[in-house]
Amino acid sequence: MRDEATSTGNPEADRGVLLGLSYRLLGTLSDAEDAVQETYVRWYRMSPHQRQEVRSPRAWLIKTAGRIGLDMLTSARARRETYVGEWLPEPVPGDVPWNDIPGRADGEDPAVQLVQSESVSMALMVVLGTMTPAERVVFILHDVFGFTFPEVSEVVDRSPAACRQLATSARRRVRRERVGSTVAADAEEHSRIVRSFRRAWSAGDVAGLVQILDPQVTAVTDGGGVVSASIAPLRGAQDAAKFFVGALTRQPGLVIVEDQVNGQPGLVASHEGRVVAVVSLLVDGGRVVEAWAVRNPEKLVAWNHGE
């Protein structure tokens, strides 16, 4: 990462950057906010002289948030072993205002640019959740935020060579899960598929949904044991289509609209004025190959005006 201080000289100006980093690391806004708060506690716990000795406050803050995120990830893995059903990242509404990545040079490798552009997409967030804590921190700090492997090694307490291996392993996971298959040139097709999905779903058209879904599609729903959801992933177009259409029967009056989810077109379902589900789709070859539906109310707080 280029050695640079914050543009204003005020570390608080980097709160958005830290929130974006921490969300990518932890997968929920509440955990991300806790990590950012702890980062600033450690910054202000230093004496004024110690803070003045920090050449790049932004780099210090990001690396400290990375260490905190690593610790929180380790404990989160234990908590998720007792989670009821499938665990999905918390979906973020809108265009994700903290999606700008500091410190990257122009003219980066196209593959790196793709990772950056999709670094908060639900598709990549789901894959990040399959990584070990160390893999996830190394991948995000190096491939997304542009830290060098020697810099990352200070965060994860591994050698630069070990960090390079962790990054390679993480990239292999990303390629295997087809993240990045919907490149910028296919954004229009992605929007079209989302729109077609909404129309078929709203109409209760099982056959129409089956035509949109890949025959081997996987649909994952996250209810957290709080609301009804499929405990195991649904596999196959017919089963997935029936599940989505069944939601119309379970909650009559369900309203489904298109909206930005993690910076990409997605679907938001509301019942009696409250958001009850947020759906993200991964499109490949003109069909939906992965569908993720978050129903856990604790992960929909940001969609219900912070209630």
Rank of each mutant, 00 (worst) to 15 (best):
L141V: 02
D95G: 13
P93H: 01
P160C: 11
A237G: 10
S47G: 14
V255T: 14
P252C: 10
V289I: 15
R104W: 02
R67F: 07
G27T: 05
P297K: 07
Q238K: 05
E4P: 00
Q238H: 09
V41F: 15
R55I: 12
R136P: 00
K242V: 03
A5F: 01
V278L: 12
M122E: 12
T249A: 15
I140T: 12
D31Y: 11
V179L: 02
L248N: 13
A187P: 01
I212D: 00
Y83R: 15
E258I: 06
P89S: 11
G16Q: 09
T82D: 14
E298F: 14
Q37G: 14
G225N: 00
R175V: 09
V278H: 08
V137I: 09
G285R: 01
I140C: 07
L254A: 04
R24E: 01
V156Q: 04
R164Q: 15
R175S: 14
R2T: 12
V36H: 14
V120S: 02
S121Y: 01
V152F: 13
V152N: 08
S7R: 15
V183E: 15
A78P: 04
Q37M: 12
R77D: 02
A76F: 09
L70C: 02
P48L: 09
A247M: 15
L19N: 06
A203K: 01
P48H: 12
T249F: 06
D71I: 07
H305S: 10
F145R: 10
V183M: 15
V96Y: 02
P297M: 10
T168D: 13
A237T: 08
V126K: 10
T6K: 06
R250T: 10
P48K: 09
N304S: 02
V227Y: 11
D100W: 03
V138F: 00
S153T: 02
Y23W: 12
R295K: 11
S280C: 10
L88Y: 03
E272I: 07
W87N: 05
R171L: 13
L88G: 08
L61P: 06
A59K: 13
V144W: 05
A200M: 05
T8A: 14
P48C: 13
S121R: 00
G94N: 06
A219P: 14
H142N: 15
R172Y: 08
D100H: 01
Q251D: 11
R79G: 08
D157V: 10
D214T: 06
R171W: 11
W60K: 04
D14C: 07
G146C: 05
G9N: 08
P265A: 11
L300G: 00
E151Y: 06
Q238P: 06
R274G: 04
M122Y: 14
Y40A: 01
W292Q: 11
M131A: 04
E33A: 07
R295T: 04
P89K: 00
L61Q: 01
D239F: 01
H190A: 13
V283M: 03
R79H: 14
S47P: 00
V92Y: 09
R178V: 05
